[in-house]
Computed example of a mutant assay.
Amino acid sequence: MKKIGLLPRLIIGLVTGVIIGYISSNIGVRWPVRLLATFNDIFGQFLNYVIPLIIIGFIAPGIAELGKGAGKLLGITTGLAYISTVIAGTLAFIVGSFLLPAIVTGGTAANPAEAQLSGYLTVEIPPIIGVMTALITAFVLGLGMAALDSKHLYYVMNDFSKIVNKLISVIVIPLLPIHVGGIFANMTYGGQVVQTLAVFGQIFIIIIALHIIYLILQYTIAGSITGKNPLQALKNMIPAYVTAVGTQSSAATIPVTTKCGKKNGISNQVADFAIPLCATIHLSGSTITITMCSVAVMLMSGLTPTFNTIFPFILMIGITMIAAPGVPGGAVMAALGILQSMLGFNQAQLALMIALYLTQDSFGTACNVTGDGAIAMVVDRIANVNKKV
């Protein structure tokens, strides 16, 4: 029997939550919603505990891995990937600031209203360390391992990363549909769900459109630098895009992305190096989604997102999503820490971010891997120029 994917389970959880909230509100029975609210309180506390572990477990070995690469080409590829990620996030903020205020009304859902119900109990699970402390610790460990070429510590951190990955894939991800269902049951009970779902649909359309626009921009720039037809180059990457939509994994799509890149004339050496690297560090599609969703959730909360608030957040996204866990929703999991520490998101807002992100995760991944081909084209051009000098 074929296993049901995360997105269908998320939709089932969301719909079930809406039904439970609607029935509870109409017949005056509170306990099903309060029971789900209790689960959400405990699961939210667990997420708080896990977030610093995710940051250390994935960022530290990810930075260390970058230090073991191919010298100058590593630096060039990493720099281009980071610049692309920052531009993607900035573009998403500009578009979101222009379009979303007309769609989102303040207080739609992200801040629970008094009409929503509390759980029966709350279990405090304080994190081992704070989010910003975890970030600094991850940078220190990662840079230290890279500088010292410390294989023993790297192996320890790599095993720790696998433990955290297992924690996410076995516990966090399977329980997310229940968590999202609980959030929507409470929102339905409080009379907020209709507006929220309408907003979800419109944001989804804007995000997918922006993915496509950004891919066209990436290949236009890459084509102008390499002298290749950007539309033909983008057309050659369609198999990678389609594969990523199906697999929902940048890593699983690497063989197809590499083959498509070579079809665009990228040398074997550069394609085999740059594309697998970019699959880890270049997340422009994910950054577009997370930035757009962040703006939407802030507007739902009655807040006004500003460039001074969002741009530092975008700069940090490019770092925190290095080696994001290779599971559906891994990028947003890696970003939970800075959503909490830099934008001040509470558990309800984080749950909405997860729900918004996962509805388009396949398309965000497809944007990521397709954009990897554009980065590799530019790196190949730079490598050829250096050979001639």
Rank of each mutant, 00 (worst) to 15 (best):
V170E: 15
S161V: 02
I168W: 04
I171W: 12
Y189T: 08
G181Q: 07
L148A: 11
G191W: 08
F184W: 13
N165C: 03
A209M: 06
I212W: 06
G190L: 07
A147V: 06
D159F: 05
I208F: 09
H179K: 00
H211S: 07
G190P: 06
V193P: 00
K166E: 08
H152M: 03
N165K: 08
L153A: 15
A209P: 00
V193G: 02
L197P: 04
K162P: 00
A146L: 10
I207N: 14
K162Q: 11
A147H: 10
L153K: 08
S150V: 02
G191H: 09
G181H: 08
V170Q: 14
Q202D: 01
D149T: 02
L148M: 07
L210P: 03
Y189I: 07
I178L: 14
L197W: 00
P177E: 13
L167G: 11
Y189W: 13
I171S: 10
G182N: 05
Y189V: 04
L148C: 01
H179T: 01
A198R: 12
V199E: 15
A146R: 12
I173D: 11
N165G: 15
I171Y: 14
I178N: 01
I206C: 00
I212H: 04
V180R: 02
T188C: 06
I212S: 10
L197E: 02
G201W: 01
L210T: 15
Q192V: 01
G190S: 15
I183P: 00
I203S: 13
I207Y: 00
Y189C: 09
K166F: 03
V156S: 06
G190D: 13
I183V: 11
I168V: 14
V170K: 14
N186E: 07
Y189Q: 08
I183L: 14
A146V: 07
L175W: 03
V194W: 07
Y155M: 10
H179E: 04
I173Y: 03
H211N: 15
Q192D: 12
N186R: 03
I203V: 15
I208K: 06
I171F: 15
M187F: 04
L148T: 06
L148H: 00
A185W: 09
T188E: 11
F200P: 03
L197R: 01
N186I: 01
V170A: 14
S150Q: 13
I205S: 11
H179N: 10
N186L: 02
G201P: 04
V170D: 15
V164P: 07
A146N: 10
I205F: 13
D149A: 08
K162W: 01
D159I: 01
P174Y: 08
I178M: 10
H211P: 01
S150I: 02
G190A: 15
V172Y: 07
I178G: 04
H211Q: 11
I163M: 04
I183E: 13
I163P: 00
N165D: 12
L176Q: 11
V170G: 03
S161A: 12
N158F: 05
V172I: 15
F160G: 04
T196K: 09
T188S: 14
I173W: 02
I163L: 08
H179W: 11
I207W: 01
L153N: 13
F204T: 12
N165V: 00
F160N: 05
G201M: 02
Q195D: 15
I203Y: 11
P174H: 05
T188Y: 03
I178S: 04
M187K: 08
T196F: 12
K166N: 12
V194P: 01
I208Q: 07
T196G: 10
L175A: 13
F204V: 10
G190E: 12
V170R: 14
I203T: 14
